[in-house]
């Protein structure tokens, strides 16, 4: 794009609209990488903890969940550093805050259940419900129907499944949640290609 001062009013408006849209697409496409990263981590952690719990019969392996942010945040920062710096817009900023709030809520409740009030039966149910809710809210912000529906299915369906399953089998719900996040990332990447 070089100098051109001979634009008509319509050409100028088209340029504004195209540039704004292209910039918005780049920003939202970039957010897809983080859905994929955290989705893959969720799948990996849930399967490892499921296997360890299944083999040993001890739910204490759930403490490994606390390692997920310790692994995830440096990886997310590394991912951000490796590519061209992408600016934040209102939607990407809101997405970041919503998922951070989810992380803080879940981390706090898990920590409380370990140190203060044990709640083994209801914890998975709560976390899956909030995970599905956060996924749906992300879908609303991204104006992406598959993500909204996936979040609803995970939240509501997952809560029902968590209510009727016991112990380590509940962890597979998080594997499903992780897979849905990866799929969301792929859909967002394609949507804003």
């Amino acid at each position: 794009m070089e100098q051109n001062n001979e634009m008509t009013a319509q050409e100028s408006l088209n340029l504004i609209s195209e540039t704004l849209n292209a910039s918005r697409r780049s920003i939202l496409k970039d957010s897809a990488r983080y859905f994929i990263l955290w989705g893959l981590l969720l799948v990996a952690f849930s399967l490892v903890i499921y296997e360890l719990w299944h083999i040993s019969g001890k739910p204490v392996w759930n403490c490994l969940w606390f390692a997920m942010p310790i692994v995830g945040y440096p990886l997310a920062m590394l991912l951000g550093k490796k590519s061209t710096p992408i600016p934040q817009n209102l939607i990407s900023r809101q997405l970041g805050w919503i998922w951070l709030a989810y992380g803080v809520f879940v981390f706090s409740v898990c920590l409380l259940s370990v140190v203060a009030v044990p709640m083994p039966a209801s914890l998975t149910l709560l976390i899956v419900l909030v995970l599905g809710f956060t996924e749906s809210i992300s879908g609303i912000l991204l104006k992406n129907w598959p993500t909204i529906v996936a979040g609803f299915v995970l939240g509501v369906g997952g809560t029902l499944v968590a209510a009727v399953t016991k112990s380590e089998a509940q962890l597979l719900l998080f594997t499903l949640g992780g897979l849905l996040m990866v799929i969301t990332g792929i859909i967002v990447k394609r949507q804003y290609k």
């Binding site: 794009m1 100098q3 634009m7 100028s12 340029l15 504004i16 540039t19």
Partner: peptide, 9 residues
């Protein structure tokens, strides 16, 4: 101007 308008947009 095309480029300045794109930057501002």
């Amino acid at each position: 101007s095309e480029l300045r308008l794109a930057i501002m947009s």
